[in-house]
């Protein structure tokens, strides 16, 4: 079998559409990043101006999110969660949605230097915050040391929990470059793995810190 490292993530089928690309195409066309004149929508952003705060209306407004160092404009309603905006509106489908209730950690991203469940974060609360997602870890086509370590140590089976797991691990390594197994366990306590790959996950994190 191919080593997972040698596999391309976006394999194309004979018809020339990648499965991922097809799925993304379905989700995005109708929503997309807003095309309406920007100034008009920005004006709607504040329903009633007040020195004591801003009041957004119920409908969509254009906001700017800073994701993996890039400023991205996107049209959102106040009720949209960051997880759905990342996935469905910004095509960043690395972040997963499992329980949608803050219990599984599949949607973990780093916001202003701390991990959060993006399914329980409103996109409008992420305005002005530095958001890091799994897509931001790779640099110039090279996976990060942490991602390599997950591959090396078989830190995944189905892979559904992996982006969230890795974001919790990245946050740990950013603060504590040489964690112990206990520290790795504690940092990923909010990430459930339905395949039960925990021992390999902890191994991968500890090894990435060495």
């Amino acid at each position: 079998m191919d080593h997972p490292k040698n596999k391309k993530t976006n394999e194309t089928n004979p018809k020339g559409i990648s499965r991922r690309g097809f799925l993304k195409g379905l989700g995005v066309t109708s929503i997309g990043v807003a095309a309406a004149p920007k100034s008009e929508l920005l004006a709607k952003l504040e329903k009633t101006p007040s020195p004591n705060g801003k009041l957004l209306g119920k409908d969509a407004v254009i906001i700017t999110l800073e994701v993996n160092g890039k400023s991205l404009q996107v049209e959102v309603e106040p009720r949209f969660t960051l997880a759905e905006v990342l996935r469905d509106h910004l095509n960043l489908t690395g972040t997963k949605i499992g329980c949608e209730r803050g219990a599984c950690g599949a949607c973990t991203v780093i916001m202003n230097g701390v991990t959060v469940n993006s399914c329980m974060t409103l996109a409008v609360d992420a305005i002005g915050q530095k958001i890091e997602t799994i897509e931001g870890l790779e640099k110039d086509g090279h996976l990060s040391k942490l991602q390599e370590s997950f591959i090396e140590h078989d830190g995944m089976q189905c892979g559904f929990c992996t982006p969230g797991m890795i974001m919790s691990a990245k946050d740990l390594l950013d603060k504590n470059p040489h964690p112990t197994r206990e520290e790795a366990q504690e940092a990923t306590a909010g990430n459930l793995c339905r395949c039960g790959t925990y021992p390999k996950v902890f191994e991968a994190i500890v090894a990435a810190g060495k």
């Binding site: 007040s50 020195p51 004591n52 705060g53």
Partner: peptide, 13 residues
Amino acid sequence: KKFEYGMAKNLAG
């Protein structure tokens, strides 16, 4: 359901 969103800058807000 849709809701309005007040981002208070202070307690008065």
